[in-house]
Design a protein around this nucleic acid. Structure first.
Length: 462
RNA sequence: GGCCGAAUGGCAGAGUGGCCAUGCACCGGAUUGCAAAUCCGUUUACCGCGGUUCGACUCCGCGUUCGGCCUCCA
């Protein structure tokens, strides 16, 4: 029985799909004006794991993640660069796709772009005006009338009266209520714009998602996800827009990922502790980053620090070492007590940490079987890999993983093999002084040796 | 100020009303020419104060501390 934490009720609840066996899932994607950072990576990986697991559990999942490709920041950045908006966004969309592939994040089934849904957006704004939930202001903007939507604040348990006191919103005299938010922004001279009944302009951020969810998934769908900073106001506003315009329940379950901090501080550009995915991937193999993000529960806050990556690497090394030197079979049945534990963990609001603990228990068992030269080792290791694959992990060949990539200035595989051969000869001659000298030399070069009956193996340590 | 979440062993991080989390690190043993890897074993814990209970880290209340959101933000 799948249970998940619903932000709407702020509790863990049993999951029931609208249509048996099918799940329609929408996740708020990126605004593409810069490279994705480690916080984006968390959302990508979290919902990738969730989607993979739901499919493993037998659901047919329609996964939609949008791209916001028109927005103030994009316009500003493009102007600074002296390039066209679409040129800028194409560049960063391509970069985002590269980052995703590196992190082994599967492509969403649909990746709608705001600029490709202008008609739907304008239609929805018009509907909201027609129904009295929106109004065109004197400056050409169109605003949502929050006072008209009785349950505004339901997702984050806020009341408009309570918020007025410490409001940090712009005082803007064209709005009826300071919390009214913009649906359509009148264009300033020279900005990209689209024609509308209220004049040339562009959509507000919130309406894009309401329009795209409607296009891709319909008025009412199962799960809506996003990052930790989206419940208010973004998702609150989506609910207000979609339910007012469509006249029916918008979403059954709201899932939100936890925040990523950096060295115990909030990640922000002003603190200069902002890490892009590509910066991290330049220093660490992508699977280690994915492991780090998967080894914590998706809702928990995590701290990104160098030490955490080093530890993630040690942990992942252990799993790959267990699989090493075995002939793994691809089509092994996963059925058994480990799968049951794994599924039970994942059914409990996607408890990946507990699921990974199952993998480590399997690794210990595999190592025992290997020690006893038991033929069951390969089968169990294959099952372990199969479970890891459900999380998008353990997809590499163990030797390829352990040997790693030669970085700049590192010894090549061939050079290492030559030294290892030289050492083997020294060992055979019981020339341990030379043998140890070569081993030390390799260690200094970041290569660790492991002797075994079958000969010496090596791996790179970053 | 409002809403929400968290406080677990050296670190990271799950979980449960009474019994092993798991990983990293540490210590002892096995194995090894010595290592590495691996196995076996030991040690270290549940923020404070009340309450419920035969029994609470686990439930309830209060307090303290920390964090997220309340403005664009994953």
């Amino acid at each position: 029985m799948l249970q998940l934490h619903n932000t709407l009720t702020n509790s863990k609840v049993p999951f029931t799909p609208i249509e048996p066996g099918k799940i329609r899932l929408y996740v708020c994607g990126m605004t593409v004006y810069d490279y994705c950072h480690i916080g984006h990576a968390r959302v990508m990986v979290s919902f990738d794991v969730i989607t993979r697991y739901l499919r493993h559990a037998g659901y047919e999942v329609e996964y939609v993640r949008n791209i916001t490709d028109v927005d103030d920041k994009i316009i500003k950045r493009a102007a600074e660069n002296g390039e066209a908006c679409d040129q800028l966004t194409e560049r960063f969309i391509a970069a985002m796709h590269e980052d995703e592939r590196a992190l082994n994040v599967l492509k969403p089934d649909q990746e709608p772009r705001a600029t490709a849904h202008m008609e739907a957006i304008v239609d929805m704004v018009q509907t909201l005006i027609d129904k009295g939930f929106a109004y065109a202001a004197s400056n050409g903007d169109v605003y949502y009338r929050v006072d008209k939507f009785a349950t505004y604040g339901q997702l984050t348990n806020r009341k408009l009266e309570g918020m007025r006191a410490g409001a940090r919103v712009d005082v803007n005299d064209v709005k009826e209520n300071p919390f009214d938010f913009v649906l359509w922004k009148a264009a300033k001279a020279g900005e990209v714009s689209w024609a509308s009944p209220w004049g040339d302009g562009r959509p507000g951020w919130h309406i894009e998602c309401s329009a795209m969810t409607k296009c891709c998934l319909g008025n009412h769908f199962d799960i809506h996800g996003g990052g930790p900073d989206l419940p208010f106001p973004h998702h609150e506003n989506e609910i207000a827009q979609s339910e007012a315009a469509n006249g029916e329940t918008f979403v059954n379950y709201w899932l939100h990922a936890g925040a990523v901090r950096v060295n115990k501080e909030k990640m922000s550009k002003s603190l200069g502790n902002f890490f892009t995915i590509r910066e991290v991937l330049a220093k660490y193999p992508a699977e280690i980053v994915r492991y780090l993000l998967t080894a914590s529960h998706y809702r928990s806050q995590i701290d990104y620090a160098e030490g955490a990556l080093v530890e993630a690497q040690s942990a992942l090394d252990r799993l790959y070492t267990a699989m090493d030197q075995l002939t793994l079979v691809a089509d092994v049945s996963l059925a058994g007590p480990h799968l049951e534990r794994f599924n039970a963990a994942m059914d409990d609001d996607f408890n990946t940490r507990e699921a990974i603990a199952v993998l480590f228990d399997m690794a210990r068992e595999v190592n025992r079987l290997k020690r006893d030269a038991d033929a069951g080792a390969a089968k169990l290791a294959s099952q372990m890999r199969g479970l890891g694959n459900i999380l998008g992990l353990l997809e590499m060949d163990p030797q390829t993983y352990l040997k790693g990539q030669a970085g700049e200035g590192d010894l090549s595989d061939a050079a290492i093999d030559a030294l290892v051969a030289q050492r083997n000869e020294a060992k055979t001659n019981r020339d341990f002084a030379l043998s140890d000298q070569i081993r030390d030399q390799l260690k200094d070069a970041g290569v660790v040796l492991e002797d075994s009956k079958e000969g010496a193996r090596w791996k790179r340590e970053s």
